[in-house]
């Protein structure tokens, strides 16, 4: 069955990158909160939490990269022309693929913004 068969196509892929973003955001906050409140206390070093957040960021960006690539491939497949709003499988694939790619780019930027914080904050204040 081809990758773009009608039956395989769903909206789920569209939600994957924002889900990575949401999960990354939550994990960063929860990790830092628990680390500061339960482990090292006020004024303690964030060192291990920063490493964890760096790992989350790399994993989230990798996941978003894979989803974005799949989206790009779906967008590149077929000959449906712009603006991809006909009721044919090809138009849908191209449209959903492109939307997935754009959402992946947005999610990547958001993940980088959340992850940037570790370069500035070194302690629990």
């Amino acid at each position: 069955m081809s990758e773009t068969a009608e039956k395989d196509q769903s909206l789920w892929l569209l939600t994957a990158s924002p889900t990575f973003w949401a999960a990354h955001f939550l994990l960063c906050y929860i990790t830092a909160a628990i680390w500061c409140a339960k482990v090292v206390g006020l004024g303690g070093s964030l060192a291990s939490a920063r490493v964890a957040i760096a790992v989350y960021t790399v994993l989230a960006l990798a996941g978003i990269g894979i989803v974005g690539r799949v989206g790009y491939r779906r967008h590149s497949h077929g000959n449906a022309t712009l603006p991809h709003d006909d009721d044919t499988p090809e138009d849908r694939h191209r449209f959903l693929g492109f939307a997935t790619l754009l959402l992946s780019a947005l999610s990547a930027v958001a993940v980088i913004y959340a992850g940037l914080v570790i370069f500035f904050f070194r302690s629990c204040y």
Binding site: L116, F120, S123, Y125
Partner: peptide, 19 residues
């Protein structure tokens, strides 16, 4: 622009929060 502003805004925060 937002990235630059974010970095510009984040940089002074640790000093403001430290004792």
């Amino acid at each position: 622009v937002l990235t630059a502003l974010l970095i510009y805004g984040l940089a002074p925060i640790p000093a403001l929060l430290a004792p």
